[in-house]
């Protein structure tokens, strides 16, 4: 029997988790939390490609999530598109924007890149907030129903709203993880990782540094956009918060906490940071404190992020 590759192992673990955990749910509310984890996991998988593989930092990815989300709200009413196609349109717009914005700003490095992407994210949030006639302004705007749940019902598969979004987001996350893992092994992915090690060295061995960086940026923008669309369709309502600066920071934090270099680690990080506020509601005012403490401990003791560090320790002990 051929040995399980890391890629199939990751996908299997993920699929098993998605399929099995619902059996332990005490109430319908947990489907909602699960779906949120998957959506955040998807956005963070995009960050893994950009930050974990290519070593570039973006503080503006919430902007793409905003574009994806508002595409689902606006395209059906203004262009008559089906909400699912609206999500695709959002992804295309995000990709094009990422390409246009990325071309000049990916020439920047380190802090400058972070600041430029930050500016982009804030711009999107400002447009969503201020273009009241189109976006509904800070009060938000309604998003039409996806309609897939009704379709499944006609086919004999009757799911509650929570269950439907749990499995739907789970499947999209699996697809996203599969693509990211494939990329990791591909020549393109190797180029990205070479770039992460040293841009000069990568250039010397014939990698078109600017192009490869731009690819990573565009791909991760599409991930964020699709995640934004899923949030919008699931909530049937969207506010400009989705494009806010804090949301960008949240994405990066999730990736770094779980382990930006590994897809499973990043999803794990998304899970923890989505769950913590829900668990900590009992601890009232201490939520921020606990979050900060967890972050600091991880940064100090588990530099690669939670999951990769723990796995390494476990493996080390096994040998």
């Amino acid at each position: 029997m051929p040995r399980l590759t890391a890629k199939s192992a990751t996908l299997l673990v993920l699929a098993a988790l998605i399929a099995v955990t619902p059996f332990f749910f005490p109430s319908g509310y947990y489907y909602r939390v699960g779906a949120l984890i998957f959506v955040n996991g998807l956005a963070v998988t995009g960050i893994v490609i950009l930050t974990g593989y290519a070593g570039q930092i973006s503080l503006g990815h919430a902007g793409f999530a905003g574009i994806g989300g508002y595409a689902c709200a606006l395209a059906p009413t203004h262009l008559g598109l089906h909400p699912s196609l609206a999500g695709v349109l959002g992804a295309v717009i995000s990709a094009v924007l990422a390409y246009l914005v990325g071309r000049p700003i990916l020439r920047l490095r380190g802090y400058y890149l972070a600041v430029a992407t930050l500016g982009f994210g804030i711009l999107v949030a400002m447009v969503l907030n201020n273009e009241r006639a189109l976006t509904g302004g800070p009060d938000g705007i309604a998003v039409p129903e996806l309609g897939l749940r009704g379709l499944l019902k006609d086919w004999g598969l009757d799911l509650t709203n929570g269950q439907f979004w749990y499995f739907f987001c789970g499947i999209v996350l699996l697809i996203g993880a599969w693509i990211a893992l494939n990329l990791h092994q591909s020549p393109g992915g190797r180029a990205l990782r070479a770039l992460h090690g040293s841009e000069i060295a990568a250039g010397t061995v014939g990698i078109d540094v600017a192009r490869v960086k731009l690819q990573a940026f565009v791909i991760s923008a599409v991930y964020a956009s699709v995640a934004g669309s899923l949030v919008a369709l699931q909530n049937k309502f969207i506010t400009p918060d989705i494009a806010g600066f804090m949301h960008s920071i949240e994405m990066v934090t999730m990736a770094v906490l779980g382990g930006a270099g590994s897809v499973l680690g990043a999803i794990f990080g998304a899970g923890i940071l989505t769950l913590l506020p829900q668990v900590l509601t009992v601890l009232a005012e201490y939520e921020q404190l606990v979050l900060g403490l967890v972050m600091m401990l991880v940064m100090i003791f588990l530099r690669e992020g939670l999951l990769p560090s723990v796995l390494r320790k476990l493996r080390g002990r096994g040998e």
Binding site: G28, Y29, R32, L36, I238, Q278, T281
Partner: peptide, 20 residues
Amino acid sequence: YDDGGDANKARTFATRLIED
């Protein structure tokens, strides 16, 4: 619950209030 003014969180808490 405190939703911090975030519509997404508010929806989660509403679900929690009703279902859980």
